[in-house]
Design a protein around this nucleic acid. Structure first.
Lengths: 226, 226
DNA sequence: GATACCCCTGACAATTTATGTCAGGGTAGT
DNA sequence: ACTACCCTGACATAAATTGTCAGGGGTATC
């Protein structure tokens, strides 16, 4: 009985991670011996699951699905519900609307009995709006799309000491902190990585040029160092 | 070994046929006894596969089991990604894991070209852990499942003035604020609605009893009044 | 060419599961 | 009442799973 659960768990796990998973970490997580994991892998492969193991690396699952994703369990549904509500509460209008739409699409594919509990779920998210709600121009969405399109933008920024500056940057990524969104970018002026708080932006404008992301790896390394 | 193949076969079979499949036909096809098929069904159900058996009909798989391909636009994808990462950052371990799994399942049903951008999306969520990270017992998940199951719980609570109390409550809902999770409940002792910060809970224990939600409407009204 | 990580395989005894059989009970439609 | 199913419990036997021990071999990094 334990075995079957384990096999499904392994599949799920390999699907979840892009990075290779070592047999040892699986063994530990599942409370079984290393040998058992190796045997499980043979079983999975013999059933046609596209799992590949490489020495010195770990296990990976090939793209394309051997088993279609299972339905969402109660915890996963909770995570989706609260996640979408968090975004709806903390994002700007376009992102909040998108969260609502995504939520609707997901609930549409749920079985009826789960669909009801999805909408009635007693999970809420609440967020205070950072500034006075009336006239705050929110730059989250323009910046977000600029990140997506890899478009250079020119910004007017007010740092935490209220010193204004103007610069052209490559917007690389966004991070949601407790209260603020942080934009990580490559600043052409400083020729280095810089972070900017979205709520301190005075203006955002695309220059029209776009960049290729040679900086991808460096960016990820930079993020890890934060 | 035979067992695992059988379970996968049954899943495949139920997905293939729209019409109900009888346990007997499965037993015959797989060369096992009827009893074994029934036991297999229990196993599948215990793994969260919504296979339904009806007397006089046969077995069928519920609609939401296999997620159909979903199409999300770029903004919706952003919302899902950041939402799941927010939950992963702010929930406790079970909820964070669930967010990761849900994320993987969603990405698995995306068209191929969208899948890459899903994983590479430069959107991150970061959250400071509220207490010292070592020995904080996290009550989010037990409370969350109690809300789901409508189970009475007995809690030891330390209010913001550090006054301890002990009470039996009906956990009604959870709200995620910037830094803390708030539990809204009906308190039997006070005979009124009360709110509790999850991080101030000292202990949580189910009484074993459960309640029906007559309080549903009142709860929603109460929440609106906050 | 060390070194550190990994994957992978075989064998064997102990334990845990799975299985068939027998004997019931339940439900829904006819 | 009948049919055609699903479902459950008990129990002895057969089969699979598991950990342990003892290896072999590949890949990347320094």
């Amino acid at each position: 009985m334990m075995r079957v659960q384990r096999l499904f768990f392994i599949l799920d796990r390999l699907r979840a991670r892009r990075q290779p998973v070592s047999a040892e970490s699986l063994a530990e997580e599942l409370g079984v011996s290393l040998r058992t994991i190796y045997r499980d892998m043979v079983t999975l492969q013999s059933m046609g699951a596209p799992v590949r193991g490489e020495g010195g690396i770990g296990y990976q699952i090939e793209k394309g699905y051997f088993l279609p994703p299972l339905h969402f369990d109660a915890d996963e549904l909770d995570a989706i519900i609260i996640g979408m509500r968090l975004v709806a509460a903390r994002g700007d209008k376009p992102l909040a609307d998108a969260a609502t739409r995504a939520s609707a699409k997901i609930s549409a594919v749920l079985p009826e009995d789960m669909e009801d509990s999805y909408y009635d779920a007693p999970l809420l998210a609440y967020s205070v709006q950072p500034k006075s709600e009336e006239e705050t121009i929110d730059f989250l969405s323009p910046v977000r799309t600029a990140v997506r399109d890899r478009a250079f933008i020119e910004i007017h920024y007010l740092n935490l000491k209220d010193q204004p500056s103007e610069r052209v940057i490559r917007p690389l990524g966004l991070t949601a902190f407790e209260k603020v969104w942080l934009l990580t970018a490559w600043c052409e002026k400083s020729d280095d990585f810089r972070s900017f708080r979205i709520d301190r932006l005075q203006s955002v404008q695309r220059t029209g040029e776009s960049f290729r992301r040679e900086a991808g790896k460096e960016f990820r390394d930079y993020l890890k160092s934060l």
